[in-house]
């Protein structure tokens, strides 16, 4: 048996796939969160950062699509493995305990992985439509009636979070993400085999630090946007001419 068929075939392989794809997303989230902090540096800085990404990291626009496909594959793999494992797990106990099974130690984040994951998927679709694709451009509810402008990510963000209802949705999603990572990061390291006691500190350290950092970063940005901490976007802001080449 080779490694690919084992991953498809065995429960542990699927878990490894979940761990690897999960960590890829964690890496991406870390960059994404760090990028958001640039909001505090103002409209020019943030839009420059957004343009850097959109232009394929200043190299080649196709790289952006490569990146997006890569992330899509990671998400797809993560979901496929989750569904397959859930089915296997359901089949492993077809008759439930008549008097209910009590938990001794498991945590809410661990128990909410499936439902939380599904919520995050819905949120992701909304978030991409809302701020990446601009599907809701001009919507009073979702964009404060302002148009979505691809190059002006700074304005999109502030307008997009001008409605407190939308802001609360973003905050809830952030909390859900934190819970998902709280169990997910530790789990991923565990599944990938960091069993040696020497790794314990790193495993639980990162398991705690990563969710706190990522959630903290996002929450700060969302709250700042909702609370008017960021300077209002300059309506006269235009992308520099050389971006349009």
């Amino acid at each position: 048996m080779n490694s690919v068929t084992t991953i498809v075939h065995s429960s542990v392989g699927k878990k490894v796939l979940m761990g690897v794809t999960g960590l890829i997303m964690v890496g991406w989230l870390t960059i994404h969160m760090a990028g958001h902090l640039i909001m505090f540096s103002g409209q020019d800085a943030y839009n420059n950062y957004a343009h850097f990404i959109q232009s394929g990291f200043g190299l080649e626009p196709a790289l952006l699509w490569g990146m997006r496909l890569f992330m899509l594959a990671a998400i797809g793999g993560h979901i496929w493995a989750a569904v397959a494992l859930t089915q296997q797990n359901a089949a492993a106990r077809p008759v439930a305990y008549a008097a209910g099974r009590q938990n001794r130690v498991t945590t809410y984040p661990a128990r909410l992985m499936r439902i939380g994951g599904m919520f995050l998927l819905l949120y992701l679709i909304f978030h991409l439509a809302h701020l990446t694709a601009g599907v809701l451009s001009g919507s009073e509810f979702a964009m404060g009636g302002k148009p979505w402008v691809k190059e002006d990510a700074y304005a999109n963000m502030i307008h997009g979070l001008s409605n407190p209802v939308i802001g609360v949705v973003y905050l809830l999603a952030t909390v859900a993400l934190g819970a998902h990572l709280r169990h997910g990061v530790w789990s991923a390291f565990h599944t990938l085999g960091l069993s040696d006691p020497r790794w314990d500190a790193i495993k639980s350290g990162l398991g705690n630090l990563v969710p706190v950092a990522i959630v903290g970063g996002f929450v700060v940005v969302v709250l700042a946007a909702m609370g008017g901490v960021f300077a209002p976007p300059d309506p006269a802001w235009h992308p520099p001419a050389h971006w349009l080449h």
Partner: peptide, 18 residues
């Protein structure tokens, strides 16, 4: 052993530590 474990119809681990 992992092959046999799966073939017997046990579920997968989701790290609940129960």
């Amino acid at each position: 052993m992992v092959d046999q474990m799966d073939a017997e119809g046990f579920g997968g681990c989701t790290n609940h530590r129960e």
